[in-house]
């Protein structure tokens, strides 16, 4: 089970801001500062797209922006979910071909 490491909050600032967005039509709760990929992963979603060639599910491989396996579509634009920060109300769809 994936999730969040407890007890990392900065006591001087209070709890972090929660943000909501949708992925494939489902509501996802994230923290400000998350990448799309990490918000999804923490909620248990590891597959973010399927390969357009053989249809197999794909997700994060490098988590640092170099492999392009984690592509999703945000507002009609294909982006790397591991390097794109979440924004409130963002509409995220699974990506297609890299």
């Amino acid at each position: 089970m994936s999730g969040r490491i407890a007890g990392l909050d900065d006591a001087t600032r209070g709890p972090r801001e929660l943000i909501e967005f949708t992925f494939a039509g489902e509501k996802v709760t994230a923290w400000a500062g998350d990448s799309i990929a990490m918000a999804l992963w923490a909620g248990g979603t590891t597959a973010v797209r399927s390969s357009s060639k053989n249809g197999s599910p794909r997700g994060v491989l490098c988590n640092m922006g170099i492999c392009y396996e984690c592509l999703v579509v945000v507002d009609g634009r294909t982006v790397r979910s591991c390097t794109t920060p979440v924004r409130a109300g963002m509409v995220v769809e699974p990506g297609g071909r890299p």
Partner: peptide, 13 residues
């Protein structure tokens, strides 16, 4: 490396 980024960069399990 991806696992390190998850833990140390995002606090994700």
């Amino acid at each position: 490396g991806a696992l390190q980024v998850m833990v140390r960069g995002f606090g994700v399990v």
